[in-house]
Design a protein around this nucleic acid. Structure first.
Length: 281
DNA sequence: GGCCAGGGCCCAC
DNA sequence: GTGGGCCATGGC
């Protein structure tokens, strides 16, 4: 991987391999991006960047260069090496096809708190709805920021979320999930849920992270596994939603032993989700 | 306009 | 521990 500041405001990241910006963003793991043409405007926390893949080995960014180097490349997991996965999937035809179809899809490194909120919102919602609800929530509760002479809103902190819920309540169209978000924000603010200490990087075990997350009302096994996988770096997490259920039912006669995938289970799961959803309609 | 969505809670049994 | 009803909302 090579990073060049082209002096015209574009930061060119080249010599990348097996990375697809489109597949990574459009695989239902993150909800704060807008596609315009071939470019994606992506938000995370209080940052904004514009990114575009120009060919297989090159992604261009428009934004702050230190952020690209120290944040966005890691956020998108551009240089993640998924070559070991081919061994894991080789014995099952469907998984081989899914892996081939999903080539370039990476599990992103998202913020734990932001991921928790987004996936509490995700339950019984489809992806377009999740994106619009999260966007509305940020507009109502998050600090205003400017990027490329446009106004954006940062992701709200637990405090900002609590204030926003009191102020705007039902107009946020969160439905019954609003009390779950209240509980999650309260737990993180009070320190009852130390979500940043649940990351794999900080040495927390996967099973402990799941247990702690499920201590929050409104966080069941599916949401907990999504947060563990997409926000906490636990790549063995295996979220099962209606799509994965469908794939297991139709392609594996209703039974799949996930433990054989070990620490790569989450990546295999994401291939199954991405492939299953695309061939299913 | 009905069906569905990256579910979870609660209560029977 | 398992199965079914229920929960708001809007995309399609």
């Amino acid at each position: 991987m090579n990073i060049i500041d082209s002096q015209d405001g574009i930061i060119k990241v080249s010599e990348i391999k097996d990375f697809s910006l489109e597949k990574t963003l459009e695989s239902g793991q993150c909800f704060r991006f807008i596609k315009d043409g071939n470019a994606y405007t992506i938000q995370s926390g209080d940052r904004v960047v514009k990114a575009m893949q120009v060919n297989n080995s090159e992604v261009w960014f428009m934004g702050n260069k230190p952020d690209v180097e120290s944040y966005w490349i890691h956020y998108l997991n551009i240089s993640g090496d998924y070559s070991p996965i081919s061994k894991v999937v080789e014995s099952k035809t469907f998984l081989r096809e899914a892996a081939e179809y999903s080539k370039g899809l990476k599990i992103m490194n998202q913020d734990p708190w932001e991921t928790l909120v987004c996936f509490i919102i995700s339950q019984r919602n489809n992806i377009p709805k999740i994106k619009s609800t999260v966007s509305k929530l940020c507009h109502a509760c998050g600090k205003e920021i400017e990027f490329d002479s446009h106004k954006f809103h940062a992701f709200p902190s637990p405090d900002e979320l609590l204030v926003g819920i009191e102020k705007y309540g039902a107009s946020l169209s969160l439905g019954y999930r609003i009390e779950y978000l209240w509980e999650a924000a309260s737990a993180v603010r009070s320190g009852r849920l130390k979500i940043n200490s649940l990351t794999a990087q900080s040495g927390c075990e996967y099973s402990e992270a799941i247990l702690k997350l499920m201590g929050i009302r409104g966080v069941g096994p599916k949401v907990a596994n999504c947060v563990a996988l997409f926000g906490l770096g636990h790549t063995r997490a295996f979220p099962i939603d209606v799509w994965i259920e469908r794939v297991i039912r139709d392609e594996f006669d209703g039974y799949l032993d996930v433990s054989e995938f070990g620490e790569y289970a989450g990546i295999v799961q994401q291939y199954m989700f991405y492939y299953g959803r695309h061939i299913g309609k």
